[in-house]
């Protein structure tokens, strides 16, 4: 009996060694990796159009949300975003930051001047170009409701752990903020990530001004310790930072300054 068992285990051992030789392991690994790669690539390609669609809808939603942050009549949902966008955003412009000239204009579903539609421009790429000293053009979305124009300026910058972005909407005087929304890739939950909170952060921007009385560009600064408790920046140019989210708050200030400054020439020309 014992002998048979011994024989058996020897047999098994041999089999296992044979089956799992190094060559076999390598073959197995290679086939597995290739199979996985094919499956993932195929799915990614197949689902790409749906994902892009979602991203576009989100972008539209962000623009509309910023424009009507102060407006309770308009309810924005995923399904009506496209409709709202087409109804209210009547002009998309690309603006040269140095001269303030309009590089491209898109309205009524038609390209009026220029070649690129502002909606398709990636702000990140333009900022990159600007940094490298190349010519860049920045998108501006203009909404119209009840005869009043609202200017929506997209923002993009770096945060603490990853990129942050958003939109600032200016009233027809081109200096008073009527809405601001922010989003982020990877800020710390509960701290920096609170920049997405409407009540405690984003709504503070409403009514703030990006120019001072003499018409100089001031941007809007996010201030640690509360706007009311300091004297360096007047109340209409600052908002309270988020407790515990100091670094993200500083980056939001930087982003606002770096992005808004590109529209100063355009605003001075058209005011």
């Amino acid at each position: 009996m014992e002998e048979i068992l011994k024989e058996d285990s020897k047999d098994l051992k041999l089999k296992r060694i044979k089956m799992h030789s190094n060559g076999y392991i390598f073959r197995f690994a290679i086939i597995m990796v290739i199979a996985v790669a094919v499956i993932l690539t195929a799915t990614a390609t197949l689902l790409k159009p749906f994902q892009d669609d979602n991203k576009n809808t989100e972008k539209m939603q962000d623009v509309v949300k910023a424009a009507f942050a102060n407006n309770d009549d308009i309810e924005i949902t995923v399904s009506n975003t496209q409709e709202l966008y087409e109804k209210y955003i009547y002009k998309e412009l690309l603006i040269n930051p140095v001269t303030g000239e309009i590089v491209s204009e898109y309205s009524d579903n038609k390209q009026v001047t220029g070649e690129v539609r502002a909606f398709d421009v990636k702000l990140k790429d333009e900022l990159e170009k600007q940094k490298n000293g190349e010519e860049a053009a920045f998108p501006l979305f203009i909404a119209k409701k009840d005869g009043e124009e609202i200017y929506v300026i997209p923002l993009y910058g770096k945060g603490l752990w990853g990129p942050i972005w958003g939109n600032v909407a200016l009233a027809s005087d081109m200096q008073t903020v009527v809405g601001a929304i922010f989003d982020h890739k990877a800020e710390t939950p509960g701290l920096g990530a609170e920049i997405t909170d409407e009540d405690i952060f984003q709504n503070q921007f409403i009514g703030k001004k990006i120019f001072d009385d003499e018409g100089n560009f001031t941007s809007i600064t996010v201030i640690k310790g509360g706007v009311a408790n300091q004297s360096a920046i007047s109340e209409e140019h600052g908002v309270d930072a988020i407790s515990g989210g100091t670094i993200t708050s500083v980056f939001v200030s930087d982003m606002l300054h770096d992005c808004l400054t590109n529209y100063v020439e355009f605003i001075k020309k058209n005011k």
């Binding site: 799915t43 990614a44 689902l47 749906f50 994902q51 809808t57």
Partner: peptide, 12 residues
Amino acid sequence: ILVDMVLKAFAY
């Protein structure tokens, strides 16, 4: 990753 891609496409 497959689940993640499907969610991104259909339950964004």
